[in-house]
Computed example of a mutant assay.
Amino acid sequence: MKTTHTFLTLFLVLSFVACKEANKKETNTDVQMEIPETTYHIPDAWIQKRVEAANKKLNSTEAGKVLWSAMEAHGGLEKWFSNGYFSLRFNYQPLNGKGIRDSYQTIDTWSNKARHNSVTDPESVFGWDGNEAWIKAKDSTSFEYDTAFWALTPLYFSGQPFVLDGEGVNLELLPDQEFKGTLQKVIKATYDAGVGSAPDDYYILYVNSETNLLDAFKYIVSYPEYFPNGGHAPEKITVIQGTTNVDGIVLATGFKTYWSTDDKDGLGEYITKIDVTDMSFSPTVPENFFSKPAGAEVLNK
């Protein structure tokens, strides 16, 4: 069993204690506070089947081969899944000071479920259980942003290139391009209609031709709640600011995001700084960890 980072352990304990305390108040009886024995675990056979399917699919096209080589350079898709649940603190800081989003989170990388908790108040939580977005917070100031949209957004930064392995993802090989003095293999990822909450999104990955590591990626936001009449925000480009190895997976420790331009390197105005810390993997989480807790509000009714 791999070592779980102190943050995740503390988070699970605090969440469980808070739940137990709530039950105690409701029933007015003493309850022994202990971590439940039942855990949520994904079988190794399931992981192997998914990795084999991705390997076969990706290596059947030139664009897929580039993506697979990037996955291998970042530690491998099998390692990504078999490490377990991915935890991190993702601190998204627009330079204009508006829309700062800073939370601890744990993500089910197999089925794209997520649970976030406030950096300042561990009892304020929100998440996505695979079907519903939910929130349980002290008041409206706990999370002053669209938590339904944000529940999985950090995964599509910190989980690159692994998050593009699934069904409904279409890859296109674009011409090689120089970026910051290094030749990049470039692939574009789009989605089938109906895939995810924003199927019109796309990502353009810059894969370093020397290391096969991801150096940067372009993307758009087309979330229908933001653009009910269609369309999307202007294209942005996010540049990785450093990496670290966590249980065999190479992960970004930060990003800088710019408006995308047609100039050299495509870097326009620098608009957002992102710090990624407290990264760890855990092989299990408590049963129903990603489900809405008692008293939570469902957001996408």
Rank of each mutant, 00 (worst) to 15 (best):
I271R: 08
S260L: 03
T284F: 04
F281V: 09
T277W: 00
L267T: 12
Y258W: 13
V285L: 13
T277Y: 04
V276P: 00
D275T: 14
D263A: 15
T277C: 11
S280C: 13
G268K: 05
F281H: 06
G254T: 05
D278N: 12
V276K: 01
A252P: 01
E287S: 13
Y270A: 14
V250W: 01
L251V: 10
T261D: 14
P286N: 04
T272V: 15
K256S: 13
F255I: 03
I271W: 07
T261N: 13
I274D: 00
G266Q: 13
S282W: 00
K256T: 15
K273D: 15
I271H: 07
V250G: 02
Y258G: 02
D263S: 15
F281M: 07
K273Y: 12
N288T: 11
K256F: 08
P286L: 04
F281R: 03
F289T: 06
T261G: 14
T257W: 08
E269P: 08
N288W: 02
Y270F: 13
D265G: 05
K264P: 06
K264V: 14
T257I: 04
D265P: 07
D265E: 11
K273A: 15
P283T: 13
F289K: 03
S282E: 04
F289N: 03
M279E: 10
T253Q: 02
P283M: 05
N288E: 14
D265K: 04
A252W: 01
E269H: 11
V285H: 03
